[in-house]
């Protein structure tokens, strides 16, 4: 009997032990604060502009953002002329023209962000077989959202001794499985900030995570503002309904 109980306990325990050893490889998501959190949160425009700068000068070398158009940059506080000139820095393929030829022209406000690679295969070929995901929705596509992205960018560490990495792989405590095929993309002072914000990896990561959250949820400020109004209205309406109901029911209960 005792043996049977022991055997059952071992059987039940073994998978648990496996789980425990696995869980040491699970994603560590840091606890970081962002201005857009909470019911009254909003985007910090200066952080959005800095984050866009990081994306433009660093991440866009490998990651596309196909769902964001230059015209959307208005939300970051740029005016029409500024957007036009940002767009014009890129050239896009258009056509066919009247002669049936495709041609290059400067991008316009209505164009979408230009992708670094013509297709996924080219992207994989250039990155050791790993596909750099499109970043337009990345904060919605991962548990932890902005904190996750911040964690990925700041989570690089020396791999433990018993951990083997292949070429092109890096140890990252936020990535599930702790192996990522992206080399640490940020280093201190690599991008200059004109507004005196510290040029640290943590600050860069925070800014670009803010920018990517905006890219994934451009409606967030409008949504929350509307939500506050809707909730206040509904609570008031519920109060009136409750009072009316009480009055009608007064002699019936």
């Amino acid at each position: 009997m005792l043996r049977a109980i022991l055997a059952i306990a071992l059987l039940a325990g073994a998978p648990l032990a496996v789980q425990a050893s696995e869980s040491s490889h699970t994603s560590v998501i840091p606890d970081v604060q962002f201005s857009f959190e909470g019911p009254f949160g909003s985007y910090d425009k200066a952080a959005l502009q800095r984050g866009y700068k990081i994306y433009r000068q660093v991440c866009s070398a490998c990651h596309s953002m196909k769902r964001v158009a230059f015209r959307n940059l208005e939300a970051l506080g740029y005016n029409e002329a500024e957007i036009k000139s940002i767009a014009a820095e890129y050239s896009v393929t258009d056509g066919p023209n009247d002669e049936g030829e495709m041609f290059e022209r400067p991008a316009r406000a209505s164009d979408y962000f230009k992708s670094p690679y013509p297709n996924d295969n080219a992207a994989k070929y250039a990155n050791n077989g790993a596909l750099p995901p499109d970043l337009s929705l990345i904060t919605k596509a991962r548990f932890g959202g902005a904190s996750y992205v911040y964690g990925i960018l700041t989570g690089y560490e020396e791999a433990p001794d018993d951990f083997t990495l292949m070429t092109g792989q890096h140890y990252n405590k936020t990535m599930s499985g702790h192996v990522i095929a992206m080399a640490p993309p940020l280093s201190a002072d690599m991008i200059s900030y004109e507004d005196g914000t510290p040029q640290t990896v943590n600050q860069y990561a925070h800014d670009v995570a803010t920018f990517l959250t905006w890219a994934a949820e451009p409606e967030m400020e409008q949504r929350k503002k509307m939500g506050v109004g809707v909730i206040i209205f509904l609570l008031a309406f519920a109060g009136i309904m409750y009072a009316t109901k009480r009055k009608i029911w007064a002699d019936k209960h």
């Binding site: 019911p39 929350k224 509307m226 939500g227 909730i231 609570l235 519920a238 409750y242 029911w249």
Partner: peptide, 21 residues
């Protein structure tokens, strides 16, 4: 009709918390 409307509005308020926040 009154009691149901009151309950419905409370339900919608919770539903709205999810939609907006």
């Amino acid at each position: 009709t009154m009691k149901d409307t009151f309950g419905l509005v409370v339900f919608i308020a919770i539903y709205a918390l999810f939609i907006f926040f």
